[in-house]
Amino acid sequence: MIVDCALYRHGRRVPGHIDPADACAETLDDPDSFVWVGVADPVGEEFERIVEAFDLPPLAVEDAINAHQRPKFEVYGETLFVVVKPVEYVDTEEVVRVGEVQIFIHKRFLVTVRHGAATALADVRHAAEENPTLLKHGPPAALHAILDRVVDDYDLVVDGVEVDIQQVEEQVFSGEAHMNPAARIFKLEREVLEFQRAVAPLLPAVDRLARGRLAEVVPELSAYFRDVHDHLLRTSTRIDGFRALLSSALQANLTQITVRQNEDMRRISAWVAIAAIPTMFAGIWGMNYDHMPELHWQYGYPLALGVMATACGLLYRRLRRAGWL
């Protein structure tokens, strides 16, 4: 369950493995050190030992264990609790998969708790360790590294969704009657909404960090958080644009279906009108075949058929010009 536990001094990782409780004790005597503990799917006594070692707030611990929290930012005394939603897009299924990462931040430690398909924080940790100048600012610097990676991954999801929306628009305006992408549009709308739920609530939290409203965030880090906030804001704007495009595509698709139905009804009505002509003449003359039309006339039957054919032909020509056939 404990993925990694490391002690950092002056932004550099202390070699070797260390127990979380021992690492926490090490930071008491050294203000330039902090502990970064990574946990995946917390259960059982092992996580309880971490909770006791770092004196994590009970309410936040409950959220971390149960998961399914909305992105948020809460303060519990000297400990900050942040929830972020890493997202990935499965293009073959057109599905947005949402993970969850809870982060406990203190001036002496940072504990990350992962659930589900979340960003691989090992890569984030390794990337942060390559920049000790930034990491020496402590847990807030590690928090920035996590947020930066999560928000960067949002771009991949945005690009994938954008391609699928373009394909849907092409289907809507292809003019092919057998194509009805309504189900695909509804599915994409649902996935975009799920994506927006991961992004939108995170904006005020990151904005608070960007404005330096927390004592733990040194001025040097505020600029980094502002960059993350700007990136997140652009992503949120693009998501809003996606929802508008999908709504327009759905409306256009429904309009085209209505137009096609009207065209079908006009064709049916046109053929019914044409069929009504011979029916009318047949009803008048009875069609009992004794020379007709005024009975006992040698050319009456051929004349009746000719009149029917001529009337039907003229009506067909008129309807054809009107675009009903």
Score class of each variant (00 low, 15 high):
E194W: 13
A120Q: 13
A141H: 02
R114W: 07
E129K: 05
L156H: 15
A141K: 01
A177W: 10
F195C: 03
P204T: 04
L147R: 01
G138C: 07
V199E: 04
T133A: 14
R213D: 13
H126S: 15
A210K: 00
R211L: 11
R149E: 14
R125N: 11
L143T: 05
V217H: 01
S222Y: 07
H178T: 15
Q196W: 11
V217E: 01
V163R: 11
V168Y: 03
H126V: 13
V124D: 01
A117R: 14
F225N: 01
P219T: 06
E170L: 13
L209A: 04
L221R: 01
A223N: 11
F186G: 08
A205M: 00
A120V: 13
R114P: 06
F195P: 01
V113N: 05
E169C: 08
N131C: 12
R208I: 03
I185G: 03
I165A: 03
V150N: 00
V124P: 01
H144G: 03
H115W: 11
V163L: 15
V172S: 10
E220C: 02
L147D: 00
H144N: 12
P132A: 08
L134H: 09
E176D: 15
V157P: 06
L147I: 07
A117I: 11
S222V: 10
D227S: 04
Y154W: 10
L202I: 05
V161E: 03
L156V: 13
R208V: 05
V161S: 04
Q167H: 14
L203Y: 07
E129M: 12
L135F: 08
L134S: 14
P201R: 05
Q167V: 10
R226D: 09
A117G: 13
A142R: 08
H137T: 08
D207K: 14
R211C: 04
R190L: 10
F186P: 02
G212A: 06
D155L: 15
N131I: 13
H144A: 04
I146W: 02
L209C: 07
H137P: 08
E169P: 07
L134N: 09
H231R: 11
G160C: 05
N131Y: 11
N180I: 11
F109S: 10
L147S: 02
A142W: 12
V150P: 00
A117C: 09
I185L: 13
N131H: 14
A128V: 02
A177T: 14
V151G: 01
V163G: 02
G212R: 02
V161D: 02
E189G: 09
A198V: 07
H229G: 02
A127F: 12
E220Y: 09
Y154A: 11
H229W: 09
Y154S: 09
E129Y: 06
E191A: 07
Q167K: 14
A128I: 02
E191N: 06
L143W: 00
L193I: 12
T133K: 15
D159N: 12
